[in-house]
Simulated assay, not measured.
Amino acid sequence: MPYVTTPGGVKLSYQVRGAGRPLVLLQGQSNDHRWWDSVRADFDAAYQTITLDYRGTGDSDKPDEPYGTRGFAADVLAVLDEAGVERAHVYGTSMGGRVAQWLAAEHPSRVGALVLGCSSPGGAHGVERSNDVRRSLAQPDRAAAERALLELMYTPAWLATHPGPYFTIGDPGMPHYARLRHLAASARHDAWDVLPAITAPTLVVHGSDDVFNPAANAPLLAGRIPGAEVRMIEGARHAYFEEFRHVAGPMVLEFLRQHA
């Protein structure tokens, strides 16, 4: 498995599969590259897909120091440089969408087309999850809290027929301090002021029933990024890309094809 060492000395694990034009896939908070395992083959068939384990996750280093979405974007650049990729499409979901916002805004020459899934601009302008959702995730019974998270990610019908394992509810090997660092990075994200600088063709995708990262964030993002399109997937929750793979995958692939 290849690695790159950042200018700050952090060793990052990354993964390259498939062939064709490069496509970077960025996962959600506190997750490693396995977030994409259930759908990655859809993209490998048409692209050279590139993932990484964020610092704090997977096989990457886990320094106990502040993390940020802007810093994660710099880590993505380090991976692209190491892999010899000058320009790539970027598809970021959840916190990965926040990372992708910085990448596209501050390094436009490196991003072809951009897809932001179940994401948010953050800061004062972003729509936050409700206190009820926060309480469900913070309850002391960890099994109940995990069940609450699963129900935010997937519909009851999906959970009844898909017993797991689930690779979207956090990297089980993460140290506790790294989880807290990821949580803080996502919470501090605020790209509102730089979003109008994004020049990449942009598609914003969101599940209509997402309350983990409220669906109201989708039109906010699309309205802030010049020329962005927004697509809502009816009935989907946060992990729309997995449960509604039959809708989301072709939708994203068609958008990328149009901006080859």
Rank of each mutant, 00 (worst) to 15 (best):
V4G: 05
T5F: 05
T6S: 07
G8I: 08
R17N: 05
R17H: 13
R17I: 14
G20K: 00
R21H: 12
P22Q: 12
L23Q: 07
V24F: 10
L25S: 14
L25M: 10
Q27G: 15
N31W: 11
D32W: 05
D32Y: 12
D44W: 12
A45H: 08
D53L: 01
T57K: 05
G58Y: 13
D59H: 15
P63Y: 10
P66I: 06
Y67M: 02
G68F: 13
G71I: 12
V76L: 04
L80F: 03
D81K: 05
E82N: 14
E82K: 11
A83F: 09
A83S: 08
E86Y: 10
R87Q: 02
V90D: 08
Y91Q: 04
G92E: 14
G96W: 04
R98L: 11
V99C: 06
W102R: 03
A105W: 09
A105Y: 15
R110E: 03
V111C: 15
A113L: 08
A113T: 01
L114W: 02
A124F: 07
H125K: 07
V127T: 02
R129I: 11
N131G: 10
L137K: 09
A138L: 13
R142K: 06
A145N: 04
L149F: 05
L152R: 11
A157M: 11
A157P: 12
A157T: 07
W158H: 15
G164Q: 02
P165M: 04
T168S: 14
G170A: 03
G173R: 08
M174A: 12
A178C: 14
A178N: 05
R179Q: 06
H182N: 09
R188I: 03
D190E: 05
D190A: 14
A191G: 14
L195W: 01
A197P: 09
T202K: 00
V205G: 00
G207W: 01
G207S: 07
S208I: 09
D210N: 03
V211R: 10
F212W: 03
A215H: 11
A215P: 06
A215T: 06
N217E: 01
N217T: 15
A218I: 01
A222F: 08
G223L: 15
G223S: 15
P226C: 01
V230E: 05
R231V: 15
M232Y: 04
I233G: 01
H238Q: 06
Y240R: 13
F241Y: 15
H246I: 09
H246W: 09
H246F: 08
A248S: 12
A248C: 07
P250C: 02
M251K: 00
L256K: 02
